[in-house]
Simulated assay, not measured.
Amino acid sequence: MFVRIVKMSFHLENIPAFLENFELVKTHIRNAPGNRFLELYQDKNNPQILFTYSYWDTEEDLENYRKSALFDEVWTFTKKLFNDKPEAWSVDKLVTLE
């Protein structure tokens, strides 16, 4: 399992549209094969910056999602709302404390 972190920066006036669309698609993304966890965060100091944080079983699962019609629909809608290039990281979780 690994973690995918995506940083997105939006025009402030586009955030409500993004959040409305995310509400519609979040369950579908979470239920994509291999997805084990999905959260959305908003930066406390700059509300124009949002992050998705997701757990995937394998890199192949993430790539299959990225090649899916669902991803194409979500990304086509979302990328029009950005004010900067998105950034993404795939990371291995080393330690968890609960």
Rank of each mutant, 00 (worst) to 15 (best):
K26Y: 05
T27L: 10
H28L: 04
I29E: 01
I29P: 05
I29Y: 14
R30E: 03
R30P: 01
R30V: 01
N31R: 05
N31H: 13
N31F: 11
N31D: 07
A32M: 10
A32D: 09
P33M: 03
P33F: 04
P33V: 03
P33Y: 04
G34F: 00
G34P: 11
G34T: 01
N35H: 13
N35K: 06
R36K: 11
R36T: 03
R36P: 00
F37S: 13
F37E: 09
F37L: 11
L38P: 06
L40E: 04
L40H: 02
Y41V: 08
Y41F: 08
Y41C: 01
Y41T: 07
Y41N: 02
Y41I: 02
Q42M: 12
Q42A: 08
Q42P: 04
Q42K: 09
Q42T: 08
K44N: 12
K44T: 12
N45Y: 06
N45V: 04
N45K: 14
N46G: 08
N46C: 09
P47Y: 15
P47L: 11
P47V: 06
P47I: 13
Q48N: 13
Q48E: 12
Q48L: 07
Q48D: 10
I49A: 08
I49S: 03
L50S: 10
F51E: 02
F51S: 04
T52Q: 09
T52D: 09
T52H: 02
T52R: 09
T52I: 15
Y53M: 01
S54L: 00
S54V: 01
Y55F: 06
W56P: 00
W56E: 00
W56R: 01
D57I: 15
D57E: 15
T58N: 04
T58W: 10
T58A: 11
E59S: 03
E60V: 00
E60P: 00
D61G: 03
D61K: 14
L62G: 11
L62H: 05
E63Y: 02
N64C: 06
N64I: 09
Y65A: 10
R66S: 11
R66C: 06
R66K: 12
K67N: 14
K67V: 00
K67S: 14
S68D: 00
S68Q: 00
S68V: 01
A69E: 08
A69L: 13
A69D: 08
A69F: 13
A69Y: 02
L70Y: 01
F71Y: 15
F71K: 02
E73N: 11
E73C: 08
E73T: 14
V74H: 08
V74M: 05
V74G: 08
V74R: 01
W75N: 08
F77M: 07
F77H: 11
F77Q: 10
T78C: 05
T78K: 04
T78R: 12
K79S: 10
K80L: 02
K80G: 07
K80E: 15
L81E: 12
L81M: 13
F82K: 14
F82G: 13
N83L: 06
N83P: 07
D84E: 11
D84S: 15
D84M: 14
D84L: 11
P86E: 13
P86D: 06
P86I: 12
P86S: 08
E87D: 13
E87K: 14
E87G: 03
W89E: 03
W89V: 07
S90H: 04
S90W: 04
S90Y: 02
S90L: 06
V91G: 10
